[in-house]
Simulated assay, not measured.
Amino acid sequence: MAKQAIEKHRISIRLACMCMGISETCFRYESKLSAENKQVADWLLRLTQANKRWGFGLCYLYLRNVKGFTWNHKRVYRIYRDLELNLRIKPRQRILRDKPDELSVPTAPNQVWSIDFMSDGLSDGRKLRTFNVLDDYNREGLAIDVDLSLPSARVIRSLERVIEWRGKPAAIRCDNGPEFISGQLVNWATKNRITLLFIQPGKPTQNAYIERFNRTARHEWLDLHQFESVEHAQYLATEWLWTYNNERPNSAIGGIPPKWLMKAA
């Protein structure tokens, strides 16, 4: 308004500032960070387009911890809001329940793994299942095995494949699914001196690490793709798992990717 008054009425800057109630310093101020703001906006747009389910927290942690930018979170959030990138989350009614015992936090890799199944479907209507393996120490996804059916023999084969390059876990936490309580898996675990930690029926919170991983996989991988075949689903699973382990910040371990925690250990 002060600039318009100067141009229209040909008055001095001092008089225009007095009329509008602003200081001359404010009138003459020019932002020095406009170029960096464009860089922040460009990064935010690229991240949200490549990772459609990432919110502000993951975007900021990725820029700060993975890429090494020193931008303040308030500044990044202001630009994030200006670009209207904030996700709308429908609030859910919470049911009061008894607080479960806290899960023990492993202090080293291969102390406890968590395993679980997820279900989805192919474009032709056939049911698809995934077998997920997670190291509770650094929340690293060790495997996502995809197929139409995953019996106990296939579960054992997947675990042995991971053990070949990762090493043997001291214990494996799982629910009471038929594939897990079968004699075949129990005998295999006993033979390899691996303790099976079964959660109580109907208590998925006792297997919270893998349940949280499943939610992320559902949100950022399964819900975003239509699978033409098992091979197509397996390829996308492997691609997403690499991103999850090497680039996606994980707030549970300090906002860094799971692989980074292994390097620091």
Rank of each mutant, 00 (worst) to 15 (best):
Trp188Arg: 02
Ile194Ala: 08
Thr195Pro: 00
Val186Cys: 11
Gly202Ile: 03
Ala189Trp: 02
Pro204Cys: 09
Gln184Val: 08
Asn187Cys: 12
Pro204Leu: 06
Gln200Leu: 09
Thr205Arg: 11
Ser182Pro: 01
Glu211Trp: 06
Thr190Trp: 08
Glu211Asn: 03
Arg215His: 13
Ser182Gly: 05
Gln206Tyr: 01
Asn192Gln: 14
Ile199Tyr: 09
Thr190Pro: 00
Gln184Arg: 14
Arg193Val: 03
Leu185Asn: 02
Arg193Leu: 07
Pro204Asp: 05
Lys203Pro: 02
Phe198Ser: 06
Gln200Thr: 10
Pro201Ala: 06
Pro204Gly: 09
Tyr209Val: 10
Arg215Met: 08
Gly183Cys: 07
Leu196Ala: 11
Pro204Trp: 05
Asn192Val: 02
Gln184Thr: 14
Lys191Glu: 14
Ile210His: 01
Val186Glu: 15
Ile199Arg: 11
Ala208Cys: 12
Thr190Phe: 06
Val186Met: 12
Thr216Asn: 10
Asn192Met: 06
Phe198Arg: 04
Asn214Trp: 03
Asn214Leu: 02
Thr216Lys: 08
Asn192Gly: 03
Lys203Ala: 13
Pro204Glu: 01
Phe198Asn: 00
Leu197Cys: 06
Asn207Tyr: 04
Pro204Phe: 10
Ala208Thr: 04
Gln200Ser: 15
Tyr209Met: 08
Asn207Leu: 05
Glu211His: 08
Ala189Met: 01
Ala217Arg: 00
Asn192Leu: 09
Ala208Leu: 10
Gln200Gly: 04
Ile199Cys: 12
Leu185Ile: 06
Leu185Thr: 00
Gln206Arg: 10
Lys191Ile: 01
Asn192Pro: 02
Glu211Phe: 13
Thr195Tyr: 02
Arg193Glu: 14
